[in-house]
Design a binder for these strands. Structure first.
Lengths: 155, 155
DNA sequence: GTTTAAAATTTTAAACTTGAAATAAATAAA
DNA sequence: TTTATTTATTTCAAGTTTAAAATTTTAAAC
């Protein structure tokens, strides 16, 4: 019943637990490094960058709820981030013609220009931070991460 | 000079960027699920669990600075979490004999008992959430994640 | 048409997080 | 000693995050 010889070595649950700790440590380390660099080099934050990245993919704008779905964060969260981006002149809210409840968040021209710079640095940083992985490693890693996804929501 | 034929397909930096997005999405998804379950089943949080896990490994207590080093979060952060654990009766601060600056954070008996329950559920949840990976997958994934670590700090 | 339900967003309360400043105590230097 | 530096921790300001409550508007039922 129990899968092949696991009790002879380590229970599978312990293996998975250790794997999770490793995964968490890795992403936390990289995320922390990115956050630090965004702050030091561009005086901005990772959440701001994430929102700008989403908006840059939709030049016509995104509803607040679409934005929170896309980024998988709460509604109230994006409200605050878009507020601050708006104060910075990087984003703005425009009314939706047929629906007075909704608003579209969009990047301003300044926001687009700023994001272009950020995105270039971001990609270069990751290229550096993931130097240890070649193309084959990346493919395998990407595939294994995909195997963790259950039957729920895709992307 | 440029590594083998990368421009014929996708630049390596783009590959690494996509890998990072996948890694981030995976860890965020799992972390979110753990957070939700801790809240729903035990009315607690992931940061609280992380601190309790660290303290449970050191029954004699940890200095606040040791705790923040271990968890790789800021000093001010652990102050607040230990405050709340203390209010819950799960942790307490004890003086360090030779040094009046420092304090040791420790789990109370209630904290140890609570943590035992939490840890068991946590391990079971991860076993479920990482069902898609068998022992061989886990070994490869763990190893590849290790390759992302530079020459800096080990663990 | 009025009422009810659903949808989109904002607001709120609580917790988490960081980095920096402030405190306090120990150590080193003079 | 007295002074200066380092170490340990807390406090603080700002931002992030969540879940829940409140608002506003739309759509549906009747």
């Amino acid at each position: 019943m129990t899968p092949q010889r696991e009790t002879l070595t380590e229970p599978m649950s312990k293996t998975r637990l250790r794997l999770w700790l490793k995964l968490l440590k890795t992403s936390s380390r990289i995320e922390g490094e990115l956050r630090r660099r965004f702050r030091d080099k561009f005086a901005t934050t990772l959440p701001r960058f994430d929102v700008m990245a989403a908006l840059s993919r939709f030049p016509d704008g995104l509803k607040m709820s679409e934005l929170s779905d896309l980024l998988r964060v709460s509604n109230g969260n994006v409200t605050g981030i878009v507020d601050r981006l708006t104060n910075d002149g990087h984003a703005l809210r425009v009314a939706v013609p047929g629906d007075r409840r909704a608003q579209l968040a969009r990047l301003t021209a300044a926001g687009q220009a700023a994001f272009a710079e950020l995105a270039q640095a971001h990609e270069a940083w990751l290229d550096e931070l993931l130097q240890g992985l070649d193309a084959a490693d990346a493919a395998v890693l990407h595939s294994l991460l995909g195997k963790t996804e259950g039957e729920t929501d895709a992307q």
